[in-house]
Computed example of a mutant assay.
Amino acid sequence: MLNIGCHLSVSKGYAAMGKEAIQLNANTLQFFTRNPRGSKAKEIDPKDCEVFLEIAKENNFSKIVAHAPYTLNPCSQDESARRFAMEVMAEDLERMEYLPYNLYDFHPGSHVKQGVEVGIEYIINMLNTILKPEQTTIVLLETMAGKGTEIGRSFEEIKQILNGVTLIDKMGVCLDTCHIYDAGYDIVNDLDGVLAEFDRIIGLDKLYAIHLNDSKNPFGSHKDRHEKIGNGFIGMEAIIKIINHPKLRHLPFILETPNDLSGYKDEIKMLREAYKE
């Protein structure tokens, strides 16, 4: 079965979000843990979480993905910004235990002219501070497009972070198709080669989820602008190869395309039809 879903709003609660996913014929989903452009988080309702978990179980959901807010920059040159990122992520991981054994994705951040090495050390320090042996959540580093001073533009940078984390069993990677294409990984003409490189540097066992997005910009542009499936420079043919690839087809695929709910429903339908059972 294709594990496919999209980014949904948790504003009405987890159970409502799960029901919305079912209406879209999705069996996974992604949500922001709090205001994506701020820091406020909705109060947890344990009963609501229990209802969601029942919905997920009854409808054979794969693992779901929680996304950290965009405001976090764990490798900022500003100490207060780094402390804010650490506090928010630590709290998010505590809250995730109401939805155990799922995934938490975050952008590694921007080093802002401090240099990649300094930025990576800040990220490693944060992860070694907040990760706990008893947590059930896997924390995912997201592959980035490489705009500005973003960290995570290469598999090597992702691996360098992973190498520094003590509780490595609590870590994984979320591969964003738009981001890596914009970063210079040719998933259109050499998907097997890109996956072989990922496996050699990071290891495919560390790949837990895929953000399935087309790209508004051409290969290697470092722009990070998502497009609807089949309407961008990656194209439908390459997307179909990705969802059917034997090394990827079992993973949860999350759509982050510029769509409303009806658009997501159409994309999910189209991708399910293209998936080879």
Rank of each mutant, 00 (worst) to 15 (best):
M1E: 04
M1L: 10
I4W: 00
G5T: 00
C6R: 10
S9H: 07
S9W: 09
A15K: 01
A15N: 14
K19M: 15
E20F: 04
A21N: 08
N25M: 02
A26V: 12
N27C: 05
T28C: 15
L29F: 14
F32C: 06
T33D: 09
R34N: 09
G38R: 05
K40Q: 14
A41L: 06
E43A: 14
D45N: 15
K47G: 09
F52Q: 06
A56V: 13
E58T: 14
E58Q: 15
H67V: 07
T71R: 03
T71E: 12
L72R: 04
N73V: 01
N73W: 07
C75T: 07
A90S: 14
E94R: 13
E94K: 15
N102P: 11
P108Q: 04
V112G: 05
Q114H: 07
I120T: 06
Y122S: 14
I123A: 03
I124K: 12
N125D: 15
L127N: 00
L127W: 01
L127P: 05
N128Q: 08
I130T: 03
T136P: 15
T137M: 05
I138A: 01
L141Y: 01
E142R: 09
M144S: 02
G146A: 02
K147G: 13
T149Q: 09
I151K: 04
S154W: 02
L162I: 14
N163W: 04
G164Q: 09
V165Y: 05
T166L: 14
G172I: 03
V173G: 06
D176C: 00
D176H: 02
H179K: 02
H179L: 00
Y181C: 01
Y181W: 03
G184D: 01
D186G: 01
D192Q: 03
G193T: 03
V194G: 00
A196K: 13
A196S: 11
F198P: 09
D199A: 12
I202D: 12
I202S: 06
D205F: 13
K206H: 11
K206T: 04
A209M: 00
H211Y: 08
H211L: 05
N213W: 10
D214V: 00
S215L: 06
P218H: 07
G220Y: 00
S221Q: 10
K223R: 10
R225Y: 13
H226T: 11
E227W: 05
N231A: 07
F233K: 01
I240E: 04
K241E: 03
H245L: 02
K247F: 05
R249D: 09
H250P: 08
F253S: 02
P258N: 11
N259Y: 13
D260A: 13
S262L: 15
Y264N: 13
K265Q: 12
E267L: 12
E267T: 12
K269F: 11
M270Q: 07
E273A: 12
A274K: 06
A274L: 06
A274Q: 07
Y275K: 07
E277I: 03
